Computed example of a mutant assay.
Amino acid sequence: MAVVTNGLWHENGTAIFTGMLEHGVEIKALSANPWPAMKWTPPRTASGGIDRRKVANPMQVRTLLTAVHDQGRVGPRNASTRP
C-alpha cells in the first residue's frame, strides 16, 4: 500500500517513519537514528503447509473454549487498574 504525504509518494510509509526518526535526532529527542542498525528478515513461509500434529483438533478446541467460558471473568477490566 502506498502512502501519500505532502505530495510525496512513499512505499509502505518506510520513508515517513525514517523521516520521523531523523527529526527526532534533529530536535535532540533521540541520540541517534536506530533504524539503520535494525536487522530484520522476513519470516519464513510454510512451504509444506500446516503440520496437523501441531494444531489442536476439534475436541481439544471445544474443551479449551468450554474451560475458558466456565472460568468466567478474572481480575479487573478497566484501564485505570492495570499496571
Rank of each mutant, 00 (worst) to 15 (best):
A2D: 03
R62P: 02
P34S: 04
R44L: 09
V25S: 07
A67C: 08
G75R: 04
A2N: 10
V25H: 08
N12H: 14
A32G: 04
P42A: 12
L30Q: 06
L21M: 15
Q60V: 01
Q60P: 06
T63A: 15
T63V: 02
T18L: 02
K28H: 06
A79Y: 12
V25N: 05
S31F: 02
N12P: 06
H10L: 06
F17H: 13
T81F: 02
D51L: 10
P34E: 03
P58R: 12
F17A: 09
I27T: 11
V25P: 00
G48H: 07
E11V: 01
Q60N: 07
N57M: 06
M59D: 15
M59G: 12
V68G: 04
V68Y: 02
R82W: 15
A46V: 00
M1K: 09
A15R: 10
K28Q: 12
S47C: 10
L64W: 11
D51C: 03
H10N: 04
G13E: 00
Q71D: 09
L8W: 01
V4C: 01
V68F: 05
A67R: 14
T18E: 07
G13W: 00
P58Y: 04
L64T: 08
P42F: 04
N33W: 01
R82F: 13
T14I: 15
N12Q: 10
D51V: 07
M1D: 03
L8F: 02
L8C: 10
G48D: 13
G48F: 09
V74Y: 12
W9A: 09
S31R: 11
A46G: 01
K28A: 02
A2Q: 12
V4T: 11
A79T: 11
S31P: 00
D51H: 07
L64D: 01
D51N: 15
T63G: 13
I27C: 10
L8A: 13
L21S: 01
G7N: 08
F17S: 07
N78L: 05
P83M: 01
N57E: 10
K39I: 10
I27Q: 01
W9C: 05
H10Y: 12
P42D: 02
S31N: 07
A56M: 14
G24E: 00
T14P: 00
L64Q: 04
N12F: 12
H23E: 12
A46Q: 14
S80T: 09
A79V: 14
M20Y: 11
A37N: 02
L64F: 13
G24A: 02
R53H: 12
P36N: 08
L8Q: 11
R52H: 01
F17L: 08
G13N: 03
I27G: 03
L65H: 00
G13Y: 00
R62W: 05
K54R: 15
L64G: 09
R62Y: 10
V61K: 09
R73C: 08
R73L: 08
S47I: 10
I16G: 05
W35R: 13
E22L: 12
G49V: 03
N57K: 14
G24M: 01
A29C: 01
A2C: 03
